[in-house]
Simulated scan of single mutants.
Amino acid sequence: MAQQANFDSAVSTELKRLNIPGLAVAKLESGKVAWTGYYGYQNLEKQVPVTENTVFQIASVAKTVTAAAIMQLVGQGYFSLDDDINGFLPFPVRNAFFPEKPITIRHLLRHRSSIRDNPDYLLPFWEGDYKGPDIALGTFLQNYLAAGGPTYRKDKNFIHTAPGDSFEYSNMGYALLGYIVERTAKMPFDEYCQKKLFTPLEMHNTNWFPDRIDPDKLATAYTFSDSLKVYQQRHQSTFPDYPSGQLRTSIGDLAKFLACWTNNGKFNGKSIIDSLAVQTLTPRNLSLGFHTWFLYLLNTETPMYSHNGHSPGVSTYMLYDPFSKNGLIILMNGEVTSYADWRKLIGLLYRGR
């Protein structure tokens, strides 16, 4: 008990230092949830504490879910990773600087599609400043990626490198993966995830859209003003490229997803995610990576697969070791931007209580 009290005190101290209102954490050991922890507040104004029911936006950690969805369809033989994406779209997508070079699903998964996020256009969506009408995922992508589209900008939406040749982190690339799922499965991307991932994994507090979640469960996102020394509340953000980072979920739900992933796609004895997906995206031979997941060195001896997420008032991390099947998930409704701060927090939480 004393050890846990010391651990809880250390976590609370770290949150105060980092100006983080609330945190939920899950530790996996041998592919099973070993423990979960809840700290601080999901809503400061109402003094609502973080609990097992708190639903956080997970930002770019959601890309692991989008990748799992596309890989389910790969496993079912709808397409292969090296297929030209134009075979599955109602509009053509090519980098105009290299029109002869196709963009493949593998390129999208590896952030090597040459599709660039144009901040001039996208930041108003991501930061919640866009006030216009809702834009359907397919329309948004066609407008942005197809030559002649109203938001198509050759120099800003693509890089001057051929697909496959260089890394360029691309939220729009992951939105495109979600749309390929939508077109192939003949249902909206969020509906596909609900039927094929969230329901089978018993993720009952998970949805791509915040207005479909009990508002009393939603964590409020906060940024901290260093000059004013106050927390500033952010609204529940939504954006047209939602498969890249709009997902909301609880720590328990996301732990089920990670546990399934660490167990080669099985959950409660049933295969939910094809083992091909797991072994393609996060192979036990770490030198073969990466697809979606990045490598994280917890120490000099333990490389792990990981993905982090960040948006205004949101910071998240998920990582695991494919050999020990140990993992860690951190969800917060505040901002950690320093890599050194992240390493300190991950080290503290991974050691556990």
Rank of each mutant, 00 (worst) to 15 (best):
E100M: 04
E100H: 04
K101M: 09
K101A: 09
I103Y: 09
I103C: 12
T104H: 02
I105G: 00
I105S: 00
I105E: 00
R106S: 00
R106I: 00
R106P: 01
H107G: 07
L108V: 04
L108R: 04
L108T: 05
L108W: 06
H111P: 02
H111Q: 11
R112V: 00
R112D: 00
S114D: 06
I115G: 04
R116E: 07
N118W: 09
N118R: 02
N118D: 14
P119A: 10
P119L: 08
D120T: 09
D120C: 06
D120Q: 13
D120E: 15
D120V: 05
Y121W: 08
L122P: 01
L122A: 13
L123F: 11
P124R: 01
P124L: 05
P124M: 06
F125V: 08
F125R: 06
F125D: 04
W126Q: 03
E127M: 12
G128F: 05
G128R: 05
D129A: 11
D129Y: 14
D129G: 08
D129C: 04
Y130C: 14
Y130H: 15
Y130Q: 15
Y130W: 12
K131L: 15
K131T: 15
G132P: 04
D134P: 09
I135G: 03
I135F: 03
I135H: 04
A136G: 15
A136L: 15
A136P: 07
L137Q: 12
L137D: 14
G138H: 11
G138M: 13
G138D: 08
G138R: 11
Q142K: 14
Q142A: 13
Q142H: 07
